[in-house]
Design a protein around this nucleic acid. Sequence first.
RNA 1: AGGUGAGUAGUGUAAUAGUAGCAUUGGAGUCUGUGAAGCUUCAGGUGGUGGUUCAAAUCCUCCCUCACCUUCCA
Length: 451
Amino acid sequence: MEEENKRFSTQPLKGMEDSYPSNLRLDNWIIDQIRDIIEVYCYEEYSGPLLEPIEIFAAKSSEELVQEQAYWIKDKRNKKLILRPEITPTLARMIARKSQEFKKPIRWYSVPTCYRYEDTQRGRRREFIQFNVDILGENSLYAELEILNIIIDILTSFGATSEQFQIYYNNRRFIDAICDFILKVPKNKISLIYNLLDKSNKLEEKEFLETINDNFKEEIIKQGILILKDAKSIQEVLNKFNNIPDQFLESQGYKELSEIENLIQDLDITEYCSFASNVVRGLDYYTGTVFEVFDTGKENRRAIFGGGRYDNLLSLFSNEELSGIGFGMGLLMLKLFLETYNLIPEEIMNSDYSDVIYIASINIKQSQYAHKIARELRYEEFPCIIDYRFENLGNQLKKASELGVRVSLILGPKEMEQNRITIKNMVTEEQKIVEFDNIIDEIYNIFDDLD
RNA sequence: AGGUGAGUAGUGUAAUAGUAGCAUUGGAGUCUGUGAAGCUUCAGGUGGUGGUUCAAAUCCUCCCUCACCUUCCA
């Protein structure tokens, strides 16, 4: 007889999330707090387009990132565009375009929403917000220190302690030097070493040994990998290798890593930072220092985020050489970390009407008067709400009470006639009639009393 | 890509083949110049398709989504 209307699903797309006010309040609270930290280090915020030509990702990011994980579209002229899966290529493009314009070092940060078409799991969505903090054109290792400090400040500002997180650092050139000068690993197999180290904590001991045996025959290399895997300090690595050639001690990688270690000691942040030779990071463009921040909890030891130093950021766009170091931090993973340790204050989750002025009126004739008052209050930056029912005062006050409002104004024919306002302290239930001109002072008085 | 588990009003839960119920939330009122209780009332649901059956939230199929794990990768 009649056709039922087909309704659409109210679910967002897989891996995407609706941000209701209660969620967004939390996100914004976290973002604001991080922003405060980054800005006292004098980093400036930048942002770029959500859509980019696909080539700048195809060239620099990994093949897989673009081929399998990218959202892309064709525009009306059939040009292939990508929804950014990360913002670093955009940063590179922006810097390259005007690189002469900026004083070095460049300290920038961004809070982009990025997209990756991948399988969702804990801490991973298809749409995500990722803090990116980079310092560019500062080649000294003090840049590394600054980044470490920022990370420590961010996490401790939420109340996290060194018991709860730890920054594990390493240096790719250090690993390179060991491979070159001590283990004599063929050049083309170095990336395999990276891979193995990266996996060393994820695989069972037995599996790991098998994987090593599958890939390398030389006993010295096999032993070398195991030494690296377990080493807790640079000194320990050196102690366990025999016959360390001078070439190694002269190498950039060894020098850099030792220097970083010294700086960390000088700055007295050793409680937050540890050497870990198995931290190498997946991305190819990292060249020097690399680090990962871990949740050290025994139950769910896991990486929260990481970063490192990359040379030649601009190589896609120009010949100019610019080195940088930075990190990318997913908001979601950070949230999970904070939740784990109960570092999110409960009051953030609830909406707060405690500073709101609620305007209730006896009847519709007070409409204009109510608006006049609201205008005055808002001009003074008091948030206020007019109840548009303009009748049945009891129900209006009930609503105010339910919202948690602490100050209500009541307008009736009497008040309007005399240009006055009834102001009611909802907590003490006291009320009085005041002159229109005094209303601001009276509101301050009530809030002062209550606080 | 593979694996495990789960989907019943906004939320939390009952109904194991036989009337989809309870609580809470939401709206309106009770109460036309005074709020938090109580009461009244309204709204809102079996993720979707197909099948078995007299009868499906319940059994079967496929799909979707969520959670977690593995793989992969920031």
